[in-house]
Design a binder for these strands. Structure first.
Length: 673
RNA sequence: GCGCCCGUAGCUCAGCUGGAUAGAGCGCUUGCCUCCGGAGCAAGAGGCCGCAGGUUCGAAUCCUGCCGGGCGUACCA
């Protein structure tokens, strides 16, 4: 609704201005900073002023007087130093916003049908998920939901690095430290009394300590790594048992917060089905990599640094000291190690190529992994063509037109290397559409460390925050945080609802916990380091998920109580005339309705900016405006029937829009709180 | 050293492609239940937007240089 009108305004003004002043510049439309300034503002006269060498205010006045009428817009006036303030025809706008046609018209405008692949979560399957992984999953899942809400086809992929060092370390720990067989570990993983992911969390920290204390035990890692890569032997079997069981736990954890995946491509298949071999052949053929013969990288296949660094120091003429050979070698990126095994970057290059359908003749086989309660089916890659019945039924994964890689900012360097590989292979367009959707880490605040009883090293004590480290076992586990959120919410719900059963309270508490957690992760822009603090994460008041949920509950209550006492409400889309709207639509009501009507605009703006936090902000603004309305307008006590219908229809409309915003953020809308 | 990110109210953060009087939440102070549940509403105090230059009619926003802080720069991912 809002989007359509904004579009119409932009086009109309642009064509008039280009005809009158010959300016082809795109017309920028912004939200006025104060409501008195109208619904939209055009700052274009400032730009015109320069070209025309006239005062912006004068141009604005001229435009305001001469612009042709635009349907749905009541007035355009000059304001301030040269703004054009635009006011809508409120009655007509309200009527249109509430009509089912408005929503349908928005949905019909799907710009692009091409498939988008969003890769997120990507947790090493060797230990329990922690809060950093939650940020990744919430950002990724919200991105998926935003794009889907805008009508795009989106494939959610969760890449499983089941052949890397981290899994090798835990496999080695079971083998060498605990002397357990794959069968014994499988039994451990199946034991309902043992949280296997937590068990591995501790074991991973233990083996890392062991490496630090006795470096010679690092040979365990080497043995495990090569066993896993060849796929044979006890250590390889351990690796499989560990990673499969942990992946299952991760899916459980993520499902708790409403995160689902379409497909889990695994690194074992990148290797086993020779995706990597095919990619390596391409890289060699294009001379994107070469075999280093001297220096510290001797025996490795490397990619020279100038391919992925825009301005290497040696290439800059203003630098007096050019890069010497030693430095050049150390800046190169090793793709294949001297022992012949491939690094993560190499495997990721193969994966990215597959995502864009650039490995001819290569595809995974698939096996069904789990069916979500929502009905969505998750698949996992497999090398085994034997499961052919299911395999044949699997959707066509991969071959996307665009890929978002939700990966934390610390991996920017590796992402640059992967993109450089695409470019070197001649896939310039795909490289440009392989987007590193980066975000800063979640660290632990000093207070949080104190609360967890973590003893900090001397140098860490002075820091503003401490990095989470799986290797050190330092962090807050995702499930622990979710449990605490539920417990805290449960106490609150219990206090407020003596009428509800324990199970009902529990369900509401879970919804509140998810709302609190997801909103917490979304409030921050992607470039902000979150210094995690329990007090902040567990807050349910102010700008929090539960505040938004509470606004929805209040709207539901109004409508429910109305129905209980007065029967079915009228059809709001037809019950009121534009005149009726104009009679009752005061400034507050108008601002509320207007804010609600901007939800789709907010989604597309947040998607375009790649910043889910903007969406969170908008949803909060809507909830806040509604809370004010709730307090100020006693809907059920309203004696004037027509006025009551206006109020009710606004409540209905806000509820619908708020629910759709919550859904895009993956936040449940409880019936009661 | 080089690259990227951050520095805005006591604290935690917004501020969209430069635009109108710099915003929110928490905390603090003060009001508000004859109520559709207060996880709320209203009001108030609180800001050399790190510093210094520059570009511009106009800079929290763009450029340069400093000063703090973080991350990266692995044959880990």
């Amino acid at each position: 609704m809002f989007l359509a009108l904004e579009e119409r305004l932009r086009e109309s003004v642009a064509s008039y201005v280009s005809a009158k002043y010959g300016s082809g510049a795109p017309v920028v439309v912004e939200l006025p900073r104060r409501p008195e300034f109208g619904e939209l503002a055009l700052p274009l006269c400032f730009g015109l002023a320069k070209r025309l060498r006239r005062e912006p205010r004068k141009i604005a006045e001229e435009l305001a007087a001469n612009l042709p009428a635009i349907a749905g817009i009541r007035s355009i006036e000059a304001a301030g130093g040269g703004y054009l303030n635009v006011r809508f025809d409120r009655g007509a706008y309200a009527l249109a916003a509430l009509s089912p046609a408005a929503a349908a018209a928005d949905k019909a405008k799907i710009a692009d049908k091409a498939k988008i692949i969003v890769e997120h979560t990507n947790i090493n399957p060797n230990k329990a998920a922690h809060i950093g992984h939650l940020r990744n999953a919430v950002l990724g899942d919200t991105l998926v939901r935003m794009l889907r809400a805008l009508g795009r086809e989106v494939e959610a992929q969760n890449y499983i690095d089941n052949t890397g060092v981290q899994v090798a370390d835990v496999a080695a720990a079971f083998h060498f430290l605990e002397r357990r067989s794959p069968q014994a570990v499988a039994a451990l993983a199946a034991d309902p009394d043992i949280a296997f992911d937590r068990y591995c969390w501790d074991l991973y920290a233990a083996v890392s300590r062991r490496y630090a204390e006795r470096p010679q035990s690092l040979s365990w890692r080497t043995q495990a790594l090569s066993a896993i890569e060849s796929g044979t032997g006890e250590l390889a079997a351990l690796g499989r048992v560990v990673s499969d069981a942990i992946v299952d736990r991760h899916l459980d954890t993520m499902l708790r917060i409403g995160v689902e995946y379409d497909v889990l491509p695994r690194e074992s298949e990148i290797l086993g089905l020779e995706f990597w071999a095919a990619a390596f052949a391409l890289l060699k053929q294009r001379k994107a990599v070469y075999l280093e013969t001297a220096g510290k990288n001797a025996g490795c296949w490397v990619m020279p640094a100038e391919n992925f660094r825009d301005a290497p120091a040696g290439a800059r003429p203003d630098r007096e000291r050019p890069l010497d050979e030693e430095a050049a070698a150390s800046a190169s990126k090793v793709i294949v190690r001297s022992n012949g095994t491939v690094t993560y970057v190499g495997k990721d290059i193969a994966y990215q190529l597959w995502k864009f359908g650039l490995l001819p003749g290569k595809d995974f086989h698939y096996a069904p992994l789990r069916r979500y309660p929502s009905g969505r089916q998750a698949w996992v890659s497999t090398a085994d063509a034997g499961a052919s019945a299911a395999d044949a039924a699997a959707p066509a994964f991969g071959s996307g037109a665009e890929a978002y890689n939700v990966i934390d900012a610390r991996q920017a360097y590796l992402q640059d290397v992967v993109r450089a590989a695409l470019r070197l292979l001649g896939y310039e367009r795909q490289a440009a559409r392989s987007i590193h959707f980066s975000y800063e880490m979640v660290a632990l605040s000093p207070r949080c460390c104190a609360e967890l009883g973590i003893e900090l090293a001397e140098e860490d004590r002075k820091r503003p925050y401490v990095e989470v480290s799986g290797r050190k076992g330092l962090g807050v586990k995702a499930d622990d945080l979710i449990d605490r959120l539920i417990d805290t919410a449960y106490e609150e719900v219990r206090d407020r609802h003596e009428d509800l059963s324990e199970a009902a309270c529990r369900e509401i508490a879970e919804q509140i916990a998810v709302g609190a957690l997801r909103y917490f992760m979304l409030r921050f822009t992607r470039t902000t380091v979150i210094a995690f603090d329990f007090a902040e994460a567990l807050a349910f008041e102010g700008e929090t998920g539960p505040y938004l949920q509470y606004a929805a509950v209040r709207a539901k209550n109004i409508l429910r109580k109305f129905e209980e006492t007065a029967g079915a409400p009228p059809d709001f889309s037809t019950a009121l005339s534009p005149q009726a709207w104009s009679r009752h639509l005061d400034e507050n009501l108008w601002q509320l309705l207007l804010t609600a009507s901007r939800s789709r605009w907010a989604i597309s703006r947040a998607a375009a900016a790649g910043e889910p936090a903007q969406l969170a902000r908008h949803a909060f603004e809507l909830a806040r405006t509604f809370s004010n309305f709730y307090h100020q307008y006693p809907v059920l006590k309203e004696a004037d029937r027509e006025r009551q219908t206006v109020l009710l229809s606004i409540a209905r409309y806000v509820l619908d829009e708020l629910k759709s915003l919550l859904a895009v953020m993956g936040i449940p809308a409880p019936d009661a709180m």
